[in-house]
Design a binder for these strands. Structure first.
Lengths: 176, 176
DNA sequence: CTCAACTTTCAAATACTTTTGAAAGTTGGC
DNA sequence: GCCAACTTTCAAAAGTATTTGAAAGTTGAG
């Protein structure tokens, strides 16, 4: 009997660890650093808010690292601070609605990636010059990409505003 | 007069450099390393195919670096080899259709990111165990994410198959 | 005001990624 | 077969990003 309980614990823990690892890897492809994504994963699969101390020991990371990444997650709107009455320390919960998670990631990446490239495209599109095959090719490529970037920008704005029902209903049906 | 010509050259060169830098930064957020994206940018804005030597000197990079990144771009389907009759060395041209570029990036990232997480989700969703709040929360989160991941998977498959007209026409109108 | 409990900061250390360049490999033409 | 022109490889070096931990900062309770 003792052995059975032990094996069951291992299975859940193993599953959690596997998920935390995988979420960390996925995050690192999405502008979220590995540890930041692992903290998010840990909070996602936790039934209760966790404090910094617990996060540090579960993920085997330092205090500074935990603090920095928790703050970054709060900035991204993926984690919220929760204060328990009578307790001095802070507890944290993850945004668990996947649609909301995606939206926040889109907002952040749009700001950090799309907006800067649109700015550069506008700047370099303004070259006053003689004609020539090089200039023409350059300007054509810049025009094409600008068009694309502008479309992507408004598409993302719409996605950010859209709610999940709209997305899952209308969009999913449409692409089938 | 000499001065005017010189200034005009500087402007085009400046524009090209700015664009190459920006495309490099953008690429590094998209699983394409900085140099790889810069090589792609250089080829994008070039009116003619370029050889390794030219790429090396324009971007000030080593032979090995140039070679590795050109090969990677070819693997991703973003650059094509072109042989000029009578010339021994290889020349390269970029995929210039932005829609095709995006499609290739989606294909690669789906393979490297979405498919592995779906595999892990299926594995960890199989835990046989007693009930308890921890297990329930874990399984609920995994189920939610699985659902989402499966939807994303089929959405991306459709996008990959879709052509630009469909996308720009139907999709863009829809989200307005 | 003071203390203890907690959070934040940041310079140095570590880990990870990319780049270099020289040597090895390949290939077409003679 | 042999050479010269070109491409590929890969171990070491350089460059980036992340992590640590100890010290400084903050804050509520007494």
């Amino acid at each position: 009997m003792r052995k059975l309980v032990y094996l069951w614990n291992m299975d859940l823990q193993e599953g959690k660890d596997k998920f935390i690892q995988a979420w960390g890897t996925l995050g690192s492809h999405w502008g979220i650093n590995r540890t930041m994504a692992q903290v998010h994963a840990l909070l996602l699969i936790s039934a209760n808010p966790l404090c910094a101390e617990t996060i540090m020991s579960e993920l085997q990371i330092s205090r500074g690292n935990a603090n920095m990444n928790i703050r970054a997650l709060i900035d991204w709107g993926l984690v919220f601070k929760e204060l328990k009455p009578g307790e001095r320390k802070e507890f944290f919960v993850a945004e668990k609605d996947m649609w909301e998670v995606i939206r926040q990631v889109i907002v952040q990446r749009k700001k950090k990636e799309l907006e800067p490239i649109i700015k550069v495209l506008n700047e370099v599109g303004q070259i006053e010059s003689e004609t020539g095959p090089d200039v023409e090719e350059f300007e054509k490529v810049i025009r094409d990409i600008s068009l694309f970037a502008t479309k992507a920008d408004s598409t993302l704005d719409s996605l950010i505003k859209a709610d999940q029902h709209w997305f899952v209903g209308t969009f999913m049906k449409m692409i089938k």
